[in-house]
Nucleic acid binder design. Structure first.
Lengths: 198, 198
DNA sequence: GACTTATTGTATCGACCGATACATTATATT
DNA sequence: AATATAATGTATCGGTCGATACAATAAGTC
């Protein structure tokens, strides 16, 4: 065998994520990446194939850490209704805590990825289906226990929640105001509430 | 005086919009713009100052035609509750009718514009406040006539509707499915409904 | 019709892009 | 220690970027 890597791959992906997340794929140059990661351009290409390969690994790492972990955790830990609420509250808190106002890397990718990169588009679309199906499972489970209004269509409810989430993440990037981001959650969650007498 | 322009400025802006809307600002080159508009690079720069100046004019024209017109029309023509519903339904129809799945140019700009262009960011933020205030006016007017649940906070309701709209436009770009885009509107509008007895 | 002024076309600038060639260095195996 | 192999550093490739210089052209004013 030969020489060992002198860097930690995870740390490099984190450093690259800083750039890709804040500036997007196109606006991040390979020079930017060498500066931020400390790696030479040769090592970058040797390890991650090319710029797009690096981006895909960065995005997958981001999704695992920011999204999948949260989805799994809240679904396992809370009642259906509560899981959705906690999910949104954590998303709001995470968004507001980011001083760079980078928004959501998935949403950013969704907007930047054109039809020229069908594979990436497909990946992003699939990820939103994952979120939608989380909402749908929670809603159906909650409807079974009357925790959630079962007069409403579960599929459409899940779709609406997905839209609220995407919107929250867009707004977090351009208008990272506590009152805006946190305020919108209440009415969104009220979609789930059973109708109550006046 | 000298020679007259040999092109219609509006047509040029429309042609440029095709590119900027579909590919974004950064991914559209000045060569692309000359090809699509038919203008020489000299005329482009002479007329619109530079690439960014052209983009700003394109965006403003887009907002006037796609957003402002619709806001003014539905608010003047329909009851508050109905105005919001028609606004969303038209947005859904417009989104689904776009075979190129370009989404919303305002949302696309919101995501692509980094803190490096504070002026553009401010412009986008201001535009979302315009939409939010439309929702807020409708909600308050609807609450006064009991057409909209007046037990809910009008500001937060408007914020939630804004998020749904942004989310709808994101989804329209990556998942332009009729059932998804149209389905999410029902639950979103149900946020406005007065609570009803079981 | 001479002159002025605005528009247009061509050719090109320096900068930066993603990517690679090639030599060098370091480490595991034998 | 010799050798094989992987990681690294430097230098640079051809291509494209946004923008401009400059000459040519056309249409207004006098």
């Amino acid at each position: 065998m030969g020489r060992h890597k002198q860097f930690d791959e995870g740390e490099v992906l984190d450093a690259a994520a800083e750039l890709f997340w804040a500036k997007g794929y196109g606006a991040t140059s390979t020079r930017d990446l060498t500066r931020e990661t400390g790696l030479s351009i040769t090592s970058l290409y040797h390890t991650f194939s090319d710029k797009r390969g690096l981006y895909l690994q960065v995005l997958n790492r981001y999704l695992d850490r920011t999204l999948h972990e949260r989805l799994n955790r809240v679904e396992a830990k809370f009642s259906p209704r509560k899981a959705i609420a906690v999910f949104f509250k954590e998303m709001a808190a995470t968004s507001l805590a980011d001083e760079q106002h980078r928004g959501c890397m998935l949403v950013n990718t969704a907007i930047e990825a054109t039809s020229a990169d069908a594979e990436l588009q497909q990946m992003v679309a699939e990820e939103t289906r994952l979120i939608e199906s989380f909402f749908l499972r929670c809603i159906r489970a909650g409807q079974a226990t009357k925790e959630i209004d079962d007069a409403k269509d579960a599929k459409d409810l899940a779709r609406a929640l997905l839209a609220v989430l995407m919107g929250l993440r867009v707004l977090a990037r351009i208008r990272p105001e506590k009152s805006l981001i946190e305020g919108l959650i209440g009415p969104a969650l009220s979609m789930l509430e059973p109708a109550h007498p006046n």
